[in-house]
Amino acid sequence: MTDGAALGKEAHQRHIPVMLDRCLELLAPAISRDNAYAIDGTLGMGGHTEAMLERFPKLTVIGIDRDLEAHRIAGERLQRFGSRFKPIHAVYDEIPDVLSSLGLSSVDGVLFDLGVSSMQLDERERGFAYSYDAPLDMRMDATEELTAERIVNEYSVEELRRIIRSWGEEKFASRIASEIVKTRQEQPLVTTGELVSAIQRAVPVAAQRQGGHPAKRTFQALRIEVNHELDALSRAIPAAIDALNLGGRLVAMSYHSLEDQLVKKAMVRKATSSAPKGFPVELEEHKPELKIITRGAEPPSEQEISENSRAASAKLRAAEKVKMNRGGGR
């Protein structure tokens, strides 16, 4: 077996794309067009992109990811598609620059599968998971400087409390922040195991018996802070909407309420008439730019959750571009 084939097999075995069939179903009316272009804003190991390229033979997919290891694995997996796959090392809020670099002004579909990828969770040395001991890293892009180790050892107790409460929605944020600062005064925290121990000391024993692992929310908060995820997402969804052709579709899957609320608000804002309240006639300029095509946030099926536990918290939303607010087209 060649190295490329081995990597392709590795990716298939390690990565089960979440809600794959539903994503393709929602995107199909837009990306089945001749010479269609789509953006996979969270390429990962390439599972969603591979399925799009296989099902829609006239489609070209632009695969964006900040993680160079993801590009290595996905690149090997998708090399058989030749120029129909265009990998770009970038963050998903850089869609305008990505399109400009390719000589494009718009696309027919955009897919976001948000949060941490299966690959990042599985590679222990990346430090994303609280289930085993590893360096406190959590960078999606290893070329960036900020790490979880720097945050827990350098942020003030007030800053730690803020991010753990805001990004992790953790009710014991004050206790955890105080315990982290107390612990690092004795010795710097350098591994996930050391951080988990500090969190377990801070969270009341009774609370640790319910609601999942006591470190789950703090790890989420640190990951979001390290990678500036919510700031990037708040820019990425409007950028994706602006990049769509008329009839183009945006599909986004989120895995916690902070992501989902950002996606929902951005879609609802563009799907709401801008006509003044009580205005007798809706002028063309006031008509919504989007039509939301999912009823609320769609969850995965029970069968999918049983086959892929990482799908359990997924929430899917989708919208279609129904009005252009600018000159568009490739």
Rank of each mutant, 00 (worst) to 15 (best):
250 L>Q: 10
235 R>T: 05
259 E>M: 13
240 A>T: 06
233 L>I: 00
256 H>Y: 15
251 V>W: 04
252 A>D: 04
248 G>M: 13
258 L>Q: 01
254 S>H: 11
250 L>M: 10
240 A>S: 15
240 A>L: 03
237 I>H: 03
249 R>W: 08
237 I>S: 04
246 L>Y: 13
257 S>C: 07
254 S>C: 03
245 N>D: 05
255 Y>V: 02
236 A>T: 08
246 L>M: 14
249 R>K: 14
235 R>K: 15
241 I>F: 04
242 D>M: 05
250 L>G: 04
242 D>G: 06
233 L>G: 02
251 V>C: 15
237 I>V: 15
251 V>N: 01
234 S>C: 00
239 A>R: 02
260 D>V: 10
242 D>C: 03
259 E>P: 14
230 L>I: 09
232 A>G: 10
241 I>P: 08
233 L>E: 00
249 R>S: 11
231 D>G: 15
233 L>T: 13
240 A>F: 10
260 D>E: 02
260 D>R: 03
255 Y>T: 00
254 S>L: 06
257 S>Y: 09
240 A>W: 05
247 G>V: 07
242 D>F: 04
257 S>N: 08
254 S>M: 12
259 E>G: 10
235 R>F: 14
252 A>T: 01
248 G>S: 08
242 D>Y: 13
233 L>P: 07
252 A>C: 06
244 L>G: 12
250 L>K: 11
236 A>M: 04
238 P>F: 05
257 S>I: 10
239 A>M: 02
255 Y>E: 06
232 A>C: 14
236 A>Q: 09
254 S>I: 07
253 M>N: 00
